[in-house]
Design a protein around this nucleic acid. Structure first.
Length: 493
RNA sequence: GCUGCCAUCGUCUAGCGGUUUAGGACACCGCCCUCUCAAGGCGGAGAUCACGGGUUCAAAUCCCGUUGGCAGCGCCA
């Protein structure tokens, strides 16, 4: 095992997003590829928006995706726990370092109100300067501080950014990026309520959890110089950073609700396979030399490298995801698809849909419809006519194949003849049935299609479906005859 | 406004100075297969490599600039 330690650190303020999954996936792949450890840390310092339910949803989603963590909630390592930031806060972890920074003069208490700060930012922006906090409270004397406290004001702790110099980030994906310190303001590291802010908690935890590599979206690039300054002030070694390009919606803007499904859960409900989502997301912002498209998870692990991550953002393409899903489904056995279908029904609370269905028959029908399944949710509509007592005759199909001028006469003859002859048909195998049908066509001097199609519609109610003769074989003589009879009664009486 | 990132077919991408009349994949179109629908096979269309300058014998590939897009600029993460 290497010493590589990476983490996925979601904030539990909603469902797990496509973008979040991609970040988690890259971290997971990186860890597996390097025989390192993948940790899950819950960044719940947003007391207003963080929820218990959201934590559970994220945990469930990660599990479903197979992005299992080596350390994190439920898999605590005594050396690094706890894995929830609010719990870590209760342990005084952040306060300790905030105090240290204040004591050594790298941070200070600030009593400015939200309003004051807004005003300063507006002012700066009006002067075409970057919106910065002015540093007003930087040099408060002990006296002045006491005075502010006496007024009942609660202080935030601000980090003192150097006024000069540059900080250089050597990004594993993008190379060298330079930041001008003077453009950055003294950002808050501890809020008035004593809770650490993201940039601070993140650094403290990454250090204490001995994170070696930080892989995250490039929307975090601008946070990096701030975080690096904290590492530096504390005399800590900076981890390696790798900023991946973001995933955008069809209009090229940051993926959000208005782009349709953004939550993993929605994809699960739609009947996407976990491996299809993983495979697709791996393709967004990462590629191999030969542009391979379809990967097994192990292959992904073996071939992944940050060096081959792209720098330009990519647009999420639902169509390609769908294609990958159908590919993954096609690569499974019908037994496996059956299992997945059952799991999906359970997950969506639809088990009653197939109540009373013959499981063995279902598996065989799935095999027959195999390459038409794009999503697990497609299966029901593809197979239900096998199991229903009453055939649901589609109006269009009946009109076109049974009743139209073109079909008129022959459809009726074919069905009435078939009902008698099929009843006496000894061999009900697909092969024999095909022979029977072809013979009938020759005998009546009509095209094979004029035999096949009416029978298809009579027994299934639709014009589309699996191989007719295999369908008949599976249904069995009794059912086929019954259905043809039903059709005759319905349309030719 | 400030700062940063990015720029190859509609989309995901290969490409790391000559092997490129720019390769693959999705989607699209056509043909074949065929009892329908799919799947599969074959083929097609689709990219003046954002633009403009350099560097070089040679540039999608290196450098500079321009434009455009996106992101960040919170006591959110």
């Amino acid at each position: 095992m290497s010493n590589v330690r990476v983490r996925f650190a979601p904030s539990p303020t909603g469902d797990l997003h496509i973008g979040g999954v991609r970040t988690a996936l890259f971290n997971w792949l990186f860890a597996k590829n390097k025989s390192g450890r993948f940790l899950l840390r819950i960044e719940d310092t947003d007391e207003v928006r963080s929820t218990e339910e959201s934590v559970q949803v994220i945990l469930d989603a990660m599990q479903w995706l197979g992005l299992n963590w080596d350390e994190g909630p439920g898999k605590e390592d005594p050396k690094y726990l706890p894995y929830y930031q609010m719990k870590r806060k209760e342990h005084g972890i952040y306060q300790k370092y905030a105090d240290k920074l204040v004591a050594q003069g790298s941070a200070y208490c600030c009593y400015c109100t939200q309003k004051d700060v807004d005003e300063m930012r507006k002012q700066a922006q009006a002067n075409k300067l970057p919106p910065k906090y002015s540093g007003k409270c930087r040099h408060l004397t002990v006296e002045q501080r006491k005075q502010e406290e006496a007024c009942g004001k609660k202080a935030v702790v601000r980090f003192k950014m150097p006024d000069t110099g540059f900080i250089i980030l050597n990004d594993l994906i993008r190379g060298k990026i330079e930041f001008d310190n003077s453009l950055l303001d003294d950002f808050v590291i501890v809020k008035a309520n004593g809770v650490p802010t993201y940039n601070f908690a993140c650094v403290i935890d990454d250090y204490l959890m001995e994170i070696t590599h930080v892989l995250r979206g490039d929307d975090h690039i601008s946070n990096t110089p701030r975080q690096m300054q904290i590492y530096s002030a504390l005399g800590w070694e900076v981890p390696k950073f790798a900023h991946t390009a973001m995933i955008l919606g069809h209009d090229g803007t940051r993926l959000s609700k208005r782009h349709g499904h953004t939550s993993v859960l929605e994809y699960r409900k739609e009947g996407y396979l976990q491996e299809a989502l993983i495979n697709y997301l791996a393709l967004l912002g990462w590629s191999t030399e030969n542009s391979q498209q379809i990967f097994k998870i192990d292959e992904l692990v073996n071939k992944f490298s940050v060096e081959r991550c792209g720098v330009s953002p990519s647009i999420f393409d639902p169509e390609k995801l769908l294609w990958l899903n159908s590919e993954k489904i096609r690569s499974k056995t019908s037994e496996q698809i059956y299992e997945l279908f059952i799991d999906w029904l359970k997950y969506t609370n639809n088990e009653n849909l197939i109540k009373g269905w013959d499981v063995e028959l279902l598996k065989k029908v799935i095999a027959l419809e195999h390459d038409k399944i794009n999503l697990l949710k497609d299966i029901y509509d593809l197979v239900d006519f096998f199991f229903k007592r009453e055939v649901d005759y589609k109006e269009e199909a009946v009109e076109k194949v049974l009743l139209s001028d073109k079909a008129n006469g022959t459809a009726r003859v074919v069905l009435t003849e078939s009902i008698v002859r099929l009843r006496n048909q000894q061999d009900f195998s697909a092969q024999a049935l095909e022979q029977y049908s072809r013979n009938l066509a020759v005998e009546k001097n009509i095209k094979t299609g004029q035999v096949f199609h009416p029978i298809r519609v009579a027994i299934s109610g639709r014009t589309q479906g699996p191989s007719l003769f295999h369908m008949m074989e599976l249904m069995g003589k009794e059912e086929v005859v019954k259905r043809i009879d039903m059709a005759i009664n319905k349309f030719f009486r």
